[in-house]
């Protein structure tokens, strides 16, 4: 039966095709690094990696291949704990690195050193429609009835936590119009008033701003760098930085368990060190991120004006109390969103 044979032949061809697995030519003088990162700095890493490849080759004669994975910060952190063997994690917030540390995969003190493990910073800001038709200048303007706000979901997105902390912190500091400072109840009311205006809660910071680009909402609470990167790619929304906001600090760490397993500690540490060089920090600055290297930061003050009342996570006592007092099950945010969802 000829047709039977044709059918078998077809199966055989399929089998052969799928057997032709990765014909990757693994050269002897090649080393592989796996970078597990959150989503916002991906364009910057796309430029920094070739610089590092050249640098490492000139230093050691070895070619380094860097495999990149970009997920939401929380998702990336959990993937590493579940067995994703990233040599280096670049995440949105310290708590996501701490989680990996608690799982026993990061064993060194990643916060020691000149920059305390923080590689870039940014500030919580607003993206508004061209011409700022709703005249949004500060946090107080976000409570106006009928305003449609986009902000990602804090249970999946690191960026979302920064956004909530920016708002809540500004309110506690007495920097939101009509709200007395140091008044937790008043700050909670502001938080609820803004949450009532939130129409879309995406799973990540990038999804949120992409939805804003599609024409949804009047305003997106996001990172300054997300707005700048969006504008670079031709989007016409505008950046508004509130007078009082939080400094977003993005950590980076070598994952000890994985670099030891792969034998890549040396090159992984070199990569992290390279990210603080002028060359790499300039790339970050070109992609909307504020940088920690003082000489590069000094050159970019015009692009990144100082914020009148800038506070940090340290003003909340660090991530540990924040994760229970604000984002824990009984936390301020968790209770506020519950009440808003119930329509209170």
């Amino acid at each position: 039966m000829k047709r039977n044979r044709i059918f078998l032949l077809l199966l055989l061809v399929f089998a052969l095709l799928s057997a032709c697995s990765n014909a990757t030519t693994s050269e002897a003088d090649e080393v592989k690094l796996i970078l597990g990162a959150y989503t916002t700095p991906r364009e910057a890493y796309g430029e920094i990696i070739p610089l590092f490849q050249e640098y490492w080759q000139s230093q050691t004669g070895q070619w380094v291949v860097i495999e990149e994975s970009y997920l939401g910060s929380g998702a990336q952190s959990r993937a590493v704990i579940d067995g994703f063997e990233a040599d280096i994690v670049a995440l949105s917030l310290e708590a996501d690195v701490t989680r990996i540390q608690e799982a026993g995969l990061i064993t060194h003190d990643w916060k020691e050193g000149e920059y305390h493990g923080i590689v870039t910073t940014s500030v919580v800001s607003f993206a508004v429609r061209p011409g700022n038709p709703k005249n949004i200048q500060d946090w107080g303007d976000l409570t106006q009835p009928g305003l449609e706000i986009l902000t990602p979901n804090p249970s999946t997105s690191g960026g979302a936590m920064w956004n909530i902390l920016g708002l809540y912190g500004a309110a506690l500091r007495g920097q939101v119009e009509g709200v007395p400072g140091n008044d937790q109840d008043a700050a909670e009311e502001v938080l609820k008033a803004v949450l009532r205006n939130v129409t879309v809660m995406d799973k990540g910071a990038r999804d949120s701003i992409l939805n804003f680009e599609k024409g949804i909402g009047d305003l997106a609470i996001t990172y300054e760098n997300e707005v700048l990167v969006g504008r670079q790619s031709g989007q016409n929304y505008e950046l508004v930085i509130p007078k009082s906001t939080i400094l977003i600090e993005n950590p980076i760490a070598v994952v000890d368990a994985n670099v030891d397993k792969h034998g890549t500690r040396e090159v992984a540490e070199a990569f992290v060190a390279f990210l603080y060089t002028d060359a790499a920090q300039e790339v970050f600055a070109n992609h909307g991120l504020r940088v920690v290297n003082p000489s590069v930061a000094a050159l970019t003050t015009e692009q990144y004006p100082p914020v009148p009342d800038l506070f940090t996570i340290a003003d909340f006592g660090g991530w540990d109390p924040v994760m229970t007092d604000i984002f824990g099950p009984e936390g301020v945010y968790s209770q506020a969103i519950l009440q808003v969802q119930r329509g209170e």
Binding site: L11, F14, A15, L17, S18, C20, S21
Partner: peptide, 13 residues
């Protein structure tokens, strides 16, 4: 994509 899909097809068949 193609490698995974073809192998899956063979096994399912």
């Amino acid at each position: 994509s193609i490698r995974i899909a073809l192998l899956v097809v063979i096994i399912q068949t």
